[in-house]
Amino acid sequence: MSLARVVEQPQADIPREFAEALRPYLDVLAEEMIGEIQASVPEYSRQSGAYARIVRHAVEEALAGFVNRVGDRGASRSRLLEVFRAVGSGEAAEGRPLDSLQSALRICARVAWRRLAEESERLNLSRQRMCDIGEAILVYLDEIAAAAADGYSEAQVRVAGELELRRRRLLDLLVAHPAADSRAVADLARSVRWTMPRTLACVALAARAQGDLPRPGLPPDVLVDLDRSDPCMVVPDPEGPGRHGLLNAMAADWTVVIGPAVAVGEAGLSLRLARDALALARRGVLDGRRIIRVSEHLATLMIFQDESLIQIMGRTRLEPLLALRPSQRDRLAETLLAWLQSGNATEVAARLHIHPQTVRYRLRQATELFADQLGTSGDRFELEVVLRARAAGLTPAPG
C-alpha cells in the first residue's frame, strides 16, 4: 500500500471525547506495549541502548498520533507517516527484518484493544463505539505499517547501493599495488560482512562482445566489479568445494583468466599475473575460448615477461635453424623442444603423433646443428626457453 493511498483512508466515527479520556493512560499504555514487544520480538529484546530508544520512540509516536487523530479531525497525517517512514528506514539500515517491526505494531494494537475492553464500562462505551474504535485502530495500524514498509523498501535500495560501493572499494584495496594497509582492509571487510579468507585468487575478465552482458549469479563472498575499464573479481578460497565450476557460466560471454591462489596481502600480484595472461590470450598466445588458469601457464608468462631479452637470446640460440627451409625449421624446432622436455624419443613420437624412426632422424639432424648447445644443463635450459617462446608465437630469431 502506497503512502498516498493510506493518507486518503477515512477515519472511523469516534467521539472526540474519547481522545481526552484516553490521554491520561498514554504513559501506562506505552510501558505495557514496550514490555510485551521486548518479551515477544527477539530483535527488540534488549533493555537499553539504541534498541530500547527505537522501540520507545515508535510506540510513543504511534499512541500520540492515534489520540491526536481522534481528538482533532484536522490534524495532519503527513508528519506521523513520515515518522514511520523513518522508523522503517532505520530498521532496514540496521539489517532487521520488516516482519519484526510489523509484529511490534500488531502487539501495540492488541494491547490497546485489551486495555480498551477492560476500561469500556468505566468509559461508558457502547458495543457500537467499541466496534468503531476497533476499526479505527486497525485502519490506523495499516496506515503506519504501510508508511514503515515504504521507508523500509526505499532504505533497502539505498543500503544495497552503499553496500555495493563499499564492496567495490574493498576490491580496490585488496588488489592495490603496493598493498594497502592491512588494518584498512580488515575494517572495510568487517563493514560489508566479508570474512577474510586464508587464500584468494583474482580473476581478470574481458567481454567477448560489445553492449550489456548478463550479470552472473555469484556467491556473496565473491567481490566483483564488471563496470570498470578492466573488469575483475576476487574469489576467496579458490580451491574450496565448488569453486572450480564457479566461473563456467561466465565463459560464454567473457574471457576468464584466473590468477594464482595467494595470501590476502598478495592479491595485487594475483591480479597482475591474470592480466598478463589475459593480454597473451588477446594476442592468441593462450587459448581464450576456455577458462585460463595462470597456474598452468607460468612458464609462458615468464618467457613473455621480457620479450626483448628472449629476442636477443634467440638470435644466438636458434641461429642454426637459418640453414633450413621454413617448413624444416618448424618440424625440427617442434621435435627438439619435445625431446628437451621429455628426453625420450618414444614419448616424443607419441606426443607429436609421428613414427619413432622419424623422431630419431630429426634428432640426429638437431644434434648436428645444435651440438654445442646440448652439452650443459644451462645451455639446454636456454635452448628450451627460446624454443618454447617460438612455439608460443614469439619469434626470437629470424625465420
Rank of each mutant, 00 (worst) to 15 (best):
D237G: 08
E164A: 12
P197F: 00
Q210S: 11
A184K: 02
E135I: 05
P220I: 01
A147H: 08
R243F: 07
G242Q: 04
L205N: 07
D150V: 15
L223E: 01
A176W: 00
R198H: 11
T199R: 13
G211I: 10
P231H: 03
G242Y: 04
V203G: 07
L213I: 15
C232F: 03
L223F: 05
V159M: 15
L174E: 01
D221L: 10
D221K: 03
R168N: 03
L226Q: 09
Y152A: 11
H244I: 08
A155D: 13
G161W: 04
A136Y: 04
L223T: 02
G240P: 01
A207P: 14
P238Q: 05
V192D: 03
A201L: 11
R215L: 14
L165V: 14
V185I: 14
R169K: 08
C232T: 09
A189W: 00
L188S: 02
D230E: 15
P238L: 10
A146G: 06
A186R: 06
G217W: 09
S153V: 14
C232L: 08
D227K: 15
A184F: 00
D227P: 04
P231E: 07
Q210R: 12
D237M: 09
A147I: 11
V157H: 11
V159I: 13
A136K: 05
A207I: 13
A160F: 10
P236M: 05
P214Y: 13
A179N: 02
S153T: 14
E164K: 10
V224C: 06
R190H: 10
R158I: 06
S229K: 14
E154I: 13
T195S: 15
P238Y: 09
L163S: 10
L213C: 14
A204C: 04
A146Y: 03
G211S: 10
R208N: 08
L173C: 06
D227Y: 12
A145C: 09
D142I: 10
A145Y: 00
E154D: 11
R243M: 07
A147M: 10
Q156C: 15
R158K: 15
A207T: 11
V222W: 01
D221F: 05
V157N: 09
T195M: 11
A147S: 14
T195P: 01
G161F: 06
Q210M: 03
G134F: 03
L141C: 07
I133V: 15
L173R: 05
P231S: 07
R183I: 04
P214M: 13
D237E: 15
M233D: 01
C232A: 12
V175H: 00
P214N: 14
G134Y: 05
D225H: 12
L218E: 02
I133T: 13
R193V: 07
A146T: 05
R198Y: 06
H177Q: 13
R166H: 14
E164I: 01
A149H: 14
D212V: 13
L223G: 01
